[in-house]
Design a binder for these strands. Structure first.
Lengths: 168, 168
DNA sequence: TATTGTTATACTCTATAACTATA
DNA sequence: TATAGTTATAGAGTATAACAATA
């Protein structure tokens, strides 16, 4: 649709053809940011009532601590693109819910070693099942396309991590 | 890397091979959400000092009002996946900066018709150039891959809009 | 002197519900 | 009775800088 087109009557049955997104229509940035809003809402709904609901980082932390017992906060912080301050809050929250344990790292007493509690281990299993179901959010995307997108975004993601997450 | 692997020494030169993301590694959700963090930071930096910096929706609103003079808030709200309340705040902000004008819609006095001011028109041109530059954030992704990803995510995006954005 | 993690603060976004005016 | 937009509020995430302890 050309720029400067006529007024749009109302929001019923909005279609791509009716809307001129200008350069945003060729900007990955826009689509990532907008899809993120919907994906986040969907996940929040699926996690409702669980101790890891709401907020980024708790789920990733749960799995990282589970799969890498003794991992340090600063490592997780890099993976989830947070600074140490924000990471500390995530850990406070999870520790408060009895999901993780913080110990002093054996080789460096400034650092911490993290471990899941029994409760944390159980929650990881529940959350893993929910994440499998969250595939349904992309119901209109077939398995091949889904896997392809994961593969490409994974590469982009690790490139970002390597660049220190375009840190704030 | 198998689950339950040994402790990771530190965060220096983190690599995909060192980290077991569990099921997140096959979950589009995770990559969209994490890439979103970095992409948002990058854009915030590029827009620093401009009247549309920070917060989702202002840029899209700028282009939509520019390309669809007389468009209504509720239409924009659907495109940016916000509710009317959040949309109103975006418009308050933009009106306060003298970027847009709100008029009563001719055919429905409950509704508003939105227009860009001269200042808004000028800003749209500036922002369009900045968005072109924001392509650099994905410097490790070649043009073909970039265009392919845009195409796929665009389809997913419009599917979300059609579903009323998995509204909150 | 650099690093790990903590604390405090100010700012912003989000979700929700109640409200008005008009259709 | 439904819709367009507004207002108010409570809850959460984010960015920043300053701090204590250790390396």
């Amino acid at each position: 649709m050309p720029h400067g087109s006529a007024e749009i009557a109302n929001a019923r049955a909005l279609k791509a053809e009716d809307i001129d997104l200008d350069i945003l229509d060729r900007t990955l940035n826009f689509f990532v940011r907008t899809i993120n809003i919907a994906v986040t809402r969907d996940l929040d709904r699926r996690l409702e009532g669980l101790d890891v609901a709401r907020g980024t980082g708790k789920i990733t932390t749960l799995f990282l601590v589970g799969n890498h017992p003794g991992i340090r906060p600063s490592v997780i912080a890099e993976v989830i693109l947070k600074d140490r301050s924000a990471m500390g809050r995530v850990l406070d929250d999870m520790e408060g819910h009895g999901l993780i344990r913080r110990e002093v790292a054996g080789d460096d007493s400034r650092a911490q070693a993290l471990f899941l509690t029994v409760k944390g281990e159980a929650l990881a299993i529940t959350v893993r099942a929910i994440l499998k179901e969250s595939r349904d959010f992309f119901a209109g995307t077939d398995d091949e396309e889904y896997a392809m997108l994961v593969e490409h975004l994974r590469r982009i993601y690790w490139r970002i991590v390597a660049n220190k997450g375009a840190s704030a």
